[in-house]
Design a protein around this nucleic acid. Structure first.
Length: 266
DNA sequence: ACCAAGAGCAATTGACTTCC
DNA sequence: GGAAGTCAATTGCTCTTGGT
């Protein structure tokens, strides 16, 4: 079966009942969200961010992050999120004359104040999130625009992030990879995030690491695994996923090929 | 929990083309 | 002429299934 690319609705109400849920994702679009219940920890490879019930959060798009969502005891984890896709932001920028000064902070998540305007905004979205509500795309679009205007009023500095349409610049490949090797993303995404085409990415990679990206990634992850097992006494099942391995089976296989013995025997 | 084997597919490679 | 992109053949990784 072919995967069909479906675009997410601009406003999403998420609700999970499992007590804890961790994973990682590529944050595709800038997102404004409200932590209705439960808490969430976000890790972008160098910094940790913590959000709890009642917090408003702005997540910067086109970034990689690991997250852990925790439901409150006996309750559900609930967030409400508004996504700002680039096309919409470009239109908005042209219409209202907002531009980025190009000086945005490097943070992946930003905690926003619990401003009354934000609380009112979330309150006004409730009718749109009823299960039986018929989604009128035009109205939703308007709602997203309204949200954007409110955000720009309360946190005007966010315009530097929201209207920055530049592609990721050619970043220092070596430090980027050292920081992000544990993310489970394909080579094309690594290339994009470092501001290169796939071909250029591989060429630059070869120059710096003298090997191909795929091989280096496996070796780097295994090296970290070896360290964690040997020095910190971690068990294979605890770490293989965090290090970017899809499954334990392959982790064991790759580990044994690299070190000559299975991870359980280190 | 750990390991093995095979099918399917993503990554790599190298030759070739295009762009500046 | 060199840097960057495309393409097709090949390699080798990931996922699944199943055994111990």
């Amino acid at each position: 079966m072919k995967k069909v690319k479906s675009s997410l609705p601009p406003i999403v109400h998420a609700c999970y009942f499992s007590s804890s849920n961790r994973g990682e994702q590529f944050i595709a679009a800038h997102t404004f969200s409200f932590q209705e219940s439960g808490s969430m920890t976000v890790y972008d490879g160098s910094k940790k961010y913590y959000f709890e019930e009642g917090d408003f959060r702005f997540s910067v798009g086109k970034k990689l992050a690991k997250y852990e969502k925790k439901a409150p005891p006996g309750g559900a984890f609930k967030t409400l999120a508004i996504f700002f896709d680039e096309e919409m932001l470009r239109k908005f920028s042209a219409e209202y004359g907002y531009t980025s000064s190009g000086r945005a902070s490097g943070d992946t998540c930003i905690k926003l104040p619990a401003h009354k305007a934000y609380r009112d905004l979330i309150g006004s979205l409730v009718p749109y999130l009823q299960a039986d509500h018929e989604h009128d795309l035009k109205l939703l679009e308007l709602k997203v625009k309204e949200a954007l205007l409110i955000i720009l009023k309360v946190n005007p500095e966010l315009k530097d992030i929201l209207f920055d349409f530049s592609e990721p610049g050619k970043s220092d490949l070596e430090s980027f990879m050292q920081k992000n090797y544990h993310f489970k993303v394909d080579i094309g995404r690594f290339a994009f995030l470092t501001g290169r085409s796939i071909a250029t990415f591989k060429r630059d990679f070869k120059k710096i690491f003298d090997t191909s990206p795929g091989r280096w990634l496996v070796q780097r992850r295994l090296k970290q695994a070896y360290y964690l097992i040997k020095e910190e006494g971690k068990r294979p099942t605890e770490i293989y996923n965090d290090l970017g391995f899809e499954d334990l089976s392959h982790f064991t296989y790759a580990f044994r090929r690299a070190y000559g013995l299975p991870p359980s025997k280190v």
